[in-house]
Amino acid sequence: MNQKMKKIITVEELDFFYEDFQALTGINMEVESNRVTALIGPSGCGKSTFLRLLNRMNDLIPGTRVQGKVLLDDIDLYDPQVDPVDVRRRVGMVFQKPNPFPKSIYNNVAYGPRLHGKLDRGRLDRIVEESIRAAALWDEVKDILHQSALGLSGGQQQRLCIARAIAMQPEILLMDEPTSALDPIATARIEELIKELKKNYTVIIVTHNMQQAARVSDQTAFFYMGRLVEMGPTEEIFTRPKKDQTEQYITGRFG
C-alpha cells in the first residue's frame, strides 16, 4: 500500500508521420506502472497510432517516420540498437477482434514461449496454465485444452488472446478496443479482468466507449487531431476536465 507509483513509459516530443501526413504532434506522456491508462478521442485522432508506436507496430507500415522518444524504463524503443522483436516481447498487444491462431487452445498460449526458447513440457504446461488462469479463462477451458481455439465464444477467444500475450511475460499490455466485438457480458468480464491484470502489468487501452474508459482506467488521456489535449486521473477527467475540448468531447457536444 501507499507504494510510490513508478514511471514505466515516458514519451517525449513524439511526432509521427504517414508519408507527408503528420498523424501525431508533440506528444509528451508519462505512464505509471501497474495502472490502467485509457486513450480516448474521436476516430482519426491518433490514439490507435500512438498505441501502436508503443511496441513499434507501425514499423511494419512502409513510409512511416517517428521523431522524439519513447522510453521504456530508460531505453529508447526507437534507438537503432533496439530490436523490435525484443520490444514486442516486453510490450504485448491485444487487438480489436479476437484473433486466435487456428490451433488448439494450449498451442495458442504455448506458441510464443516455444518460439522464444526451448522449454521442457512441465515448464510449458505451467506457463500455459498460469497465463490462462491470469486471463480468467482456466475454469472454462481446462478440460478442452487440446480442442481448437476457434470453437470458443468471442469473449473466450479474446481472453485467450490476453492469455497468449501474458504467456510472454510482458511488462506492458496494449489493448486496442479489446471489447468492441463482444457482447455486454463478455465485455464486463474483460473489464473485470483488466482491473485484475493491473496488479501484475501496466495496461494501456484504446477505447471508443467512454464509459468503458471511465470504468476501467486510472488515468485517461484525451487525443484530438494528433495531439494529446489532456491527461489526468480518470475521475477528474469525467467529472471536471480542465480543457474545454475534453469537456466538449466527453459530453458529446463535439461536431
Binding site: 469525467f238 467529472t239 471536471r240 475534453t246 469537456e247 466527453i250 459530453t251
Partner: peptide, 9 residues
C-alpha cells in the same frame, strides 16, 4: 445517458 463532466454536475 450516463452523463459526465458538466452534464453530470
Amino acid at each position: 445517458q450516463q452523463p459526465v463532466a458538466s452534464d453530470l454536475r
